[in-house]
Every structure is written in C-alpha cells, then in structure tokens.
Design a binder for these strands. Structure first.
Lengths: 346, 346
DNA sequence: TCGTTTTTCTAGAACGATTTAGAAGAACGA
DNA sequence: TCGTTCTTCTAAATCGTTCTAGAAAAACGA
C-alpha cells in the first residue's frame, strides 16, 4: 500500500470531490456508472484499498462486527466443544450478515482505566457466553450502550437472552439419578479460583455462575434426600474434570454418582475412573450436560441442549431485525447412555 | 449510556481541556492523581464509558485486534479440531497482548465494491489460516497494508509464515505406507466445488490449496510406484470424509489405503468402514494428518503437527516485537496407530 | 419553449478522539 | 535570589470518512 493515500488523494487524482469517491464505494446508484469505473480504476492505480475501516466506523457509527465475551480465558473457550459449537452457530449467522466476530479476551487488568479489551473493542453488539451476572465487563458494555444477548437468563426483564431452563434441565437428570437410587452425588464444576491448585470443595454460595447454581438447584429439587457435594478442579476443561474426579475417587468418601456440570468435566471424570479400573454405569454413575459429540462415543449420559441452534439464535437476535423475540428458551433432553446405572446397594 | 456524551462533555463538566480527559484514560502519568480521580468520577457520573473505540482507532492508527482469515466458511472452521486448536494457541497470545481476535467471514460477494468483511474489518494485522495462495482476500489485505502471517509457506520471500514442511510430512507417511506394501491409495481432500453434491475424483491440477498439493506430492515422492487417486466429498469435515469414503468403498475399484489430508476426513472414512464391517489396519489402511485429540482414541495413524504451538507462534510473529523470525518451520512426527497395517496380498 | 423533475455531483460540517508543541506555575539547586 | 528543570495542563491541528443540503446540468412533459 502506498502510505497516505486516502479518499482525498483519489478524488484529486480523478478530479472529483471526496464525496463522490465515497459514493463510488458505498452508494453506486448515486453516480454514473462511467464515473464509478473511472474512480475505481484510479483507486486501484494509486493503490487505494478502499475506505479506511476506522474512519468509516467513526463516521457512520457501524462497525460490522459483533463481540463475543467468554467465561474465563479466551484460550479455554476453545477447549470446550460446547463453546465451539455455539461459536459455529453464531458464525453461521454472522456470515450471513457479512459481519465479523470479535473474540474479546476477558483480562481482569485495569477495568477502571480503560486499557481493557472490552472497553476498546470496536463492536456493534455483543454475545455474552456463560459470563456470570455481576461481571464488571457486562457493566462496561452496558455503559457503552452496546446491545447484548446473553446465553443465561438475567434478572432484568429488558435483558435479551437465548437460554435453556437450567433448573428443569438439571431436574431431568436429577429425576433419572433418583430413580436409579442415587443419594450421594458429587457435582463437578468450573471454578476460577480452584485453577492451578488442588481441587476444592465448595459451598453453594461460592459457586460463581448463575447457571451452575441453577443446575445444582435443579438437582436438589428432584433429589431432596440426596447429599450433594460440590467440587472443582479448576477451569472448565477435561483436565479439571480429571483432577477433580481423581481427588473424589481417591478420597475416603466416594459418592455413587458424579455429575459434571459440563460434558468435558464429566468426560474427564470418566477418564479418571478408567485409570482406576472403574466401569462407568456399573461401579459409579457419571453424567454430564450439553451432549457434545464426544459424549456419544464415550457413552455418557447427559442433558442435551441444541448448542449450535443456540448460537444461531443469539446471532439472529443480535443481527436480524426480523427477529423480534428477545428472550428465547431452547429445549433440553435427557440422553441416557451406559454411563449411568443403578446405585450399588450398600 | 447517555447518548452523545463524549470526551468533550466530560471535559466541560470538569472544567478542563479534552486533552486532559484523554490523558486521564491513556496516560495516567501525565496528570495529577487528584485530577485523574476527579475526571474519572465525573465521567462515571455522566455515564461516559471511556474513549470511543472507532475514534481512538482512527486517530492513533491502532485497533487492538488481529484478524483471522479461514478457508471457506467461518462455520466450517469450528468443525475441525485442528482449526480450533490453532485458534486456541493464537487466542492465548492475543490475550497476553490484550488484543482481540476478529474472525472474518470470507464471503465471496462484491470483492470489488468493498462491502466485503475483509475490506471493512478494523484490524492491525491478520493471521491467514489455510487460505489458498491466490485468494483475492489476500490481495485485499496486502493492498490495505496489513501485516500478515500465513500458516502456509508462500512463494514470496518477504512473506511471513509459520508452517510445516508439507512435502516432508507427507513423505513420512508415504514411506510408512510404502513399507507396508501399499501401492493403491486414495487421498481424501477438501474441495469447495464438491460440496453439496456427489463425491468427485480430481486431478492434481484441480486441487486448490497449495498445502494439499504439497502433501500429495510428498506422498508421490515416497510412493513412486503407487497409484494415487484424489477424491473429495466436499468441505473439510467429518461428513465429507464419510461421504467420500463411502463412495470409494462402494466402488468396484477399492484402494488398499485411504489417506485423509486432515484427520477429520480420515475419521469420517473410518466411520464409513465401520458401517461396512471393515476393520481399519486390517481390511484397509486409513491415515490422516494433524493428530487431533479424537485421532488417538480412534487409533488413527497420522502425521502430528503441534497445532496449538503453531497458533501461538503465529500470534507471536503478529504481536510480539521481540519475535524477529518471520518464517518458522514447525516439526512433524509420524504417529503410527492401529489404523495402518500391511496391504493385503492379492 | 418553459417550468418541473431527475440525475449527478459538490462544499463543508460533523464523527470523537489523540497528538504535538508549548504555556504557566511549582520545585529545585546553588 | 535567579536561572533551570519538572510537573501539569491546554490550544489547535489532525486522523479519513460519511452525511446533509443544495447547486448545476440533463431529461422530461405538455
């Protein structure tokens, strides 16, 4: 690119006004075809690559990108096929509207000062994926006046979301486990503070994300007599599920069932069992949430949710003016596979 | 957000110049702490959410985002764990530099006119993931003067890339297959034109991406006596591999080995074999490229490349000024598993 | 032919910040 | 006390577009 060649340069070279050059790019019907040809040709000759993105965005107020905000570290988002599926659905719709996807890192540094990516991000709207309700980044976006759609139901009635009924979803699984006779359950969950150290047992109050809390509540509801403990091995990833399950399995006080609040956690738990010669569904029941592709081949009992559709729906609410519904509940389904079985009688 | 509240509004309300407000956000050491406090407080009171992203980008020339350009449709990118792994590595580094990732859809519409996402995207630099050398989007970016790093070696010596030696990598697999006695191979590959229709057999000239071509050449090199046919079932996805393999397996002229140019394609082929009661490594050999996580559990012989590291390296070249190397070759390794075995004697 | 509409193009003001150069005052050393 | 150096703040220019309003020319209808 020849540096410093702007719309003005081109205008001068062709002998027209900058407005006309602008129109050549944005409103072809506002000038004669011949003139447009001439401008485009000259632009190419000069090495002008079209209107500058930032300037255009500033003036027109539209950026052509929607932001995506993830739980935790961005890099972790890709370790969960569930998140990836969501992204795929969202990308599909974004593509349709010729809109880019801006993945924002959720660094905790200097929220106040504005050196934050969420502050700086040039976006027209944002998709909020499994971010806890009170997170400061949400306030930042709200402050910026950026329309948001969350994958969790919020408290505010004017909030847009595409979500599942977490309590009901977990209830389905709870009922299934209760019927199988389980009364001693360990729930594996994502917890930032447990990352990098030993697995920890948490109380319900310490559970961060609303949806996790709701799922636990759903389990409780259908398993009123059961003891339900909460354990985290760190971030939402296979390794964390593995670590947490190892810790649980090697303790004196084994449960009869382990429920991963996501499939990756549950799959990690299955791995830990495998290493100990334990057969899922026989020696111990394991179940998860999401129904990611790997769950099927692993024979994992799980609560399916249509994740790709969820991504698509978020995209539509965000980008499609024809979509008027702003609060959408997606269906869930209990998928029973071999990893769940009757609780052993003691 | 109160609409129309800008840096100027805040400046007036506090009784200072706009520059000072700007400094309060960007250069805290340029003003007294007391003044900074006052400004930030007033800003909050007025509902000012910090400097506007576009305006800042325009003036300062830095956007704080790097673009990612994928082969084909954006939505397909997420169906390949290989691409996802790359993204994860890239995201890691981006996070470190508080930089966002802008995923650009590669829509073919109106390249010339500039309504293109690649044209419009506000980015400082771009990562090019498996995009064919001659693609118009690359010219667009080049024209815009945006620094690029590709995952394929380019022809131009001044191009930056982080890649593997494709010919050598494929050669490792070729040697392995030759030793096992295979002389009749079908290569499964990604081909946009085959999408949505019947699988097709291609000639080497019709193969799009340079890296695919190089891999095929690498196979030829180590298997000079073998017949190597090229078949595509569409995009780079499990389903395409499945479809293509079905077509191959149901034909009169079965090969003794099927090589997927990516693991997802090879895994699709394994699925097709399974459905026909064929045992990989016994009845027919299957091999892939990449070594995605699923390859291990499936027992797929494949050529491993450190994809996450590749993503990280691209990120470093793109963002880290300390990284001076601009052309990096990553190592590859042949991973032999149960899916490859001796060719049956006829 | 003359007024009216349509087409084609333009001038100049935004858009909202950052940057450069420098002014005014405070602090400092001798 | 005086000249020098910091510290703290400001005025004005600038980044590259798009937008609004309107002028000039061309086409049109009767």
């Amino acid at each position: 690119m020849s540096p410093g060649v702007t719309i003005k340069t081109v205008a001068q070279a062709v002998g027209v006004s900058p407005s006309t050059v602008s129109n050549a790019y944005n409103k072809p019907d506002q000038l004669s075809a011949a003139m447009r040809e001439r401008i485009l040709a000259k632009a190419k000759e000069l090495g002008y690559a079209g209107p500058d993105a930032s300037a255009r965005a500033l003036r027109s107020g539209k950026v052509g990108a929607v932001g995506v905000l993830f739980t935790d570290k961005l890099a972790y988002a890709f370790s969960d096929p569930y998140a990836v599926g969501f992204l795929a659905g969202l990308a599909e719709v974004a593509e349709e509207f010729t809109t880019s996807l801006l993945l924002m890192p959720l660094s905790s540094t200097d929220i106040q000062g504005g050196t934050n990516a969420v502050q700086q991000a040039a976006i027209d709207a944002a998709a909020i994926f499994c971010v806890a309700g009170g997170h400061p980044a949400l306030d930042t976006l709200k402050n910026r006046g950026i329309p948001m759609v969350s994958t969790d139901r919020g408290d505010h009635p004017d909030l847009s979301w595409v979500a599942i009924d977490e309590v009901e979803a977990a209830g389905k699984l709870g009922k299934h486990l209760a019927r199988l006779g389980h009364r001693d359950v360990v729930v594996l969950l994502d917890n930032a503070e447990a990352a990098g150290s030993q697995p920890v047992e948490l109380t319900l109050d310490e559970v961060g994300y609303t949806d996790c809390e709701l799922r636990i509540r759903g389990l409780h509801k259908e398993m009123p007599d059961a003891r339900i403990r909460l354990v985290s091995g760190g971030h939402n990833a296979f390794g964390s599920g593995l670590a947490a399950a190892e810790w649980v399995l090697d303790s004196q006080d084994r449960p009869t069932a382990i429920v991963g609040l996501s499939d990756v956690l549950a799959l990690g738990a299955m791995e830990a069992m495998k290493a100990r010669g334990l057969v899922p569904g026989k020696d111990l029941t394991v179940a998860g949430f999401d129904d990611v592709p790997a769950a099927e081949s692993a024979g994992l009992t799980t609560v399916r949710q249509p994740i790709r559709d969820k991504g698509r729906a978020v995209g539509r609410v965000l980008l499609d003016p024809a979509t008027t519904e702003r609060q959408i509940t997606m269906p869930t389904e209990l998928i029973v596979r071999s990893s769940s079985g009757p609780a052993p009688r003691n």
